[in-house]
Design a protein around this nucleic acid. Structure first.
Lengths: 359, 359
DNA sequence: TTGTATGCGTTATCAT
DNA sequence: ATGATAACGCATACAA
C-alpha cells in the first residue's frame, strides 16, 4: 500500500469513492441524506485509507463551534486539583452541560494568578468559565476581550458575564454572630488570600483596605459587619496565602501567640480551620473550651476531624450546576441575567462553644 | 458606533486600516515584520473595532496545531479529580510540556469506561494521553483511529503509542514476598477493578482469567508469582469496583469473614488498604498483630492513617514528567520508543508484621 | 439522493 | 516593509 505522505481528507476520500465532498461529509454528519449502501462504501473506503473522520478543527471553523468549555483557575494544576470544591463544582458543571457536547479545557493559573492572557486568547472554546479568579488578574482582561460568553463563578465581577456565587457576606456574618452569641469578645481572623502576591503573614489595615479577591472581601466584611455591630474594634488577621491546612496551622500559631490570645477564630475556609485546630492541639489549647473555631464551606474535611467543625455550608454542586445552566443559556444566545447568589447556612458542630469565663 | 452584526475578522481590520490581511496577521504574530507605528495603528484599530485577535480555530487550521493535549480518563470527572494520583501525574505532565504551549483538554469517562469514541473523534488536540484506561474500551479504538501521537500512561497497550508505566508486577511480587517472609500462609486479595462492568463482589477464577485492566492484571500476577513459588494455592479475591476506601472496607469485611480468615491482605491500592484497616478495626481485629495489610502506590494517605501503611511506592511525578517528555518527543516527529517502565519499591511501615502463631 | 459553489478566518509563500 | 494568492479541511444552501 503506497500510503500517501499527507493525511487523507474529505477530498481524498471523495475522489477514491468517486463522489463529491458533500456526500462524504453527509456520510458522517447526516446519514439520512444518502443511501445506506453508499454510506457503507464510503465508510469502508475511509477505513482502508486510514481516514479518521472529519478533522475537528476544520469542522469547528465551518460550524463556528468548538465543543469545549474553558475553565480558568487561579492556581496551578495540582493546587487546583487538590481543592475538593473545584472537583465538585466542575463535575456538576460538566454534567449540567450535557457532557457529550462539551469537553473541558483546563487553563490553570501560574504564579501571577490566573492563566496567562496569551493562553486565554488562544483557547479554543465556546464559553469561558472563570473560577474564583482575583479581581484584577490580567487573564480577565483577555477574557473580556475574547467576546465569548463568560460565566463567572464566585469572582471577579465582570460586566456582561453571567455570574453565580454564594452569599459570602451573609455566611460570614452568621459565623461571627454565632460566636458573639456565645459571649466571645476576643476574635482573630484566618484569611486565605487577600492579594495575589504570595504574601504570607499578618495582614495590616492597608492590605485589608484593598482585598484582591471578591470572595475574601465579602467574607471579611461579613465578619466585620457582625463585629462592628457588637462594638468590637480591630481584629488581628493572618493571611495564609493558600488553603493548605499547614498554612492554617502556621497562621493559628501566630494568632494564638498574641497577647491577649483570641478565644474565637474565624477561618475563611475549612482547610485553614483544620490546620488551626491542629495548631491548637499542639499548643495544648482545648477546642472548644478555650478556643472556638468556625470554618467556611462545609467541605468534606469538616466532619473528618475531631472536634468536628462548626462551619458555613455552601452547596458546591448547586453552584456548578447553575454555572453549567448559565453557560447553556449564554450559548443559546440569551443575555446574562443578574448574578445568581446561592444561600449559605450555619452548621453548628463541636468546634465552637461558649466563651471561657476568664475574659 | 454602528457595531456590525458579525464579529470583526482580519479582513475587517485590514480594510479599516487600509492594509492587507497579511500585514494585520504579522502585526500579531511577527511584530518585526512591520514598522512599529503601523503595528500601533493596527492594534488601535483592533481595539476600536472590538477585534479580539486572530481566531484560535482558524489559526489552528492554518498552522496545523491546536495547542492542547487531550487527557482521557476512565472515570467521570469527580472520581478522576478525587484520585490524588491523577492530580500529581497531570501536574507533572503539564509542567513537563511547557504548559505555556499546551492547555489540557479533559475527556473524562462515562459509565462504560473511557470517554465516548465520538468525543475522542472530535477532540481538538495535538496529542492524546490515555490515562489508565481499560484494555478494550471503545475509546481506544477511536484513539488509534485518530492517527495522532498517543502517550499511554499505565494502560492499555497500544501499538505505535509511547508508553510509560511502572513495574506493577515486580512491585506486587515484593508485596507478597514480604508477607511470605513474615511467615504468612493464609492470604486474601483486595482488587480495585478487574472488568469495567460495575461488578462488586468476590472475583472467581473466571473473572481473574481475563482481567480487563493491564495494571490490575500485572499486580495480580505479581502477587501470584510469589504465592505460586511458595506453594500457596488459590486465594480469595474481592473486586471492590473502585478505589474508594468504603469499597475497600466492604470487601475486607467479606474477606475477613471467611473460614479460615486470612492473616495477610494484599490490597491493589492504598485507598482500599485504608478501608480494609478501618474494617479490621471495626471487627476488633488487630493490625498488624492479627492481620497484615500491604497497600500499593504509597499515596499521600499511606502515612495519614494508623497504623501507617506498608506499601509499594511508585513515583507519580516521574511518571507524569516522563509522559510529558514522551509527548514532546512525539510532537517533534520522533517515533515512539519502547515502553518506559519506572521502578517500584517496598516501603515497610506498621501495617505488616509476622504471621500470628496460631496458624 | 447527489453534486456545485461558497464561506469559515487564518497562516505561509513568494513577489514586489 | 507590504501585498497577492494559495492552502488549511470542512459544512451547507441550493441546484440538479
Amino acid at each position: 500500500m503506497p500510503e500517501d505522505r499527507r493525511r487523507p481528507t474529505l477530498d481524498t476520500l471523495a475522489a477514491e469513492v468517486g463522489v463529491s465532498r458533500a456526500t462524504v461529509s453527509n456520510a458522517y454528519n447526516r446519514p439520512d441524506q444518502l443511501s445506506e449502501q453508499l454510506r457503507e462504501r464510503i465508510l469502508r473506503a475511509a477505513e482502508r485509507l486510514g481516514y479518521a473522520g472529519p478533522d475537528p478543527v476544520a469542522r469547528s471553523l465551518a460550524t463556528q463551534r468548538c465543543g469545549a468549555v474553558a475553565v480558568l483557575t487561579d492556581t496551578n494544576l495540582s493546587t487546583a486539583f487538590s481543592d475538593p470544591a473545584l472537583s465538585i463544582t466542575l463535575d456538576a458543571l460538566s454534567s449540567a452541560m450535557d457532557s457529550e457536547d462539551h469537553a473541558l479545557l483546563l487553563l490553570a493559573g501560574s504564579a501571577e494568578g490566573g492563566p496567562s492572557p496569551e493562553r486565554v486568547r488562544r483557547a479554543q472554546a465556546d464559553v469561558l468559565v472563570a473560577y474564583s479568579l482575583a479581581d484584577d488578574t490580567p487573564a480577565m482582561r483577555a477574557v473580556a476581550a475574547r467576546g465569548l460568553p463568560v460565566v463567572v463563578i464566585d469572582s471577579p465581577m465582570l460586566a456582561g458575564a453571567a455570574m453565580v456565587g454564594i452569599d459570602d457576606r451573609g455566611g460570614a456574618n452568621l459565623a461571627a454572630q454565632h460566636l458573639l452569641d456565645h459571649g466571645h469578645r476576643r476574635f482573630a481572623i484566618l484569611a486565605d488570600e487577600i492579594q495575589p502576591d504570595q504574601y504570607r503573614g499578618p495582614a495590616d489595615a492597608g492590605r485589608l483596605a484593598k482585598i484582591g479577591y471578591r470572595v475574601s472581601a465579602e467574607r471579611f466584611h461579613g465578619y466585620r459587619s457582625a463585629l462592628d455591630a457588637a462594638g468590637i474594634g480591630e481584629v488581628r488577621t493572618w493571611e495564609a496565602g493558600g488553603i493548605d491546612a499547614t498554612l492554617g496551622a502556621r497562621g493559628a500559631r501566630w494568632l494564638l501567640d498574641q497577647d491577649p490570645p483570641p478565644t474565637a477564630l474565624l477561618c475563611m475556609t475549612d482547610h485553614l480551620a483544620v490546620g488551626a485546630a491542629q495548631a491548637a492541639a499542639e499548643l495544648g489549647i482545648q477546642v472548644p473550651e478555650e478556643l472556638s473555631i468556625v470554618g467556611f464551606d462545609d467541605s468534606w474535611l469538616a466532619t473528618q476531624v475531631a472536634p468536628r467543625l462548626t462551619t458555613i455550608r455552601q452547596d458546591l454542586a448547586a453552584k456548578g450546576r447553575t454555572a453549567g445552566e448559565l453557560a447553556q443559556r449564554l450559548l443559546a444566545g440569551h443575555q446574562a441575567g443578574p448574578p445568581v447568589q446561592l444561600p449559605t447556612e450555619l452548621i453548628i458542630r463541636e468546634s465552637s462553644g461558649p466563651a471561657p469565663h476568664a475574659q
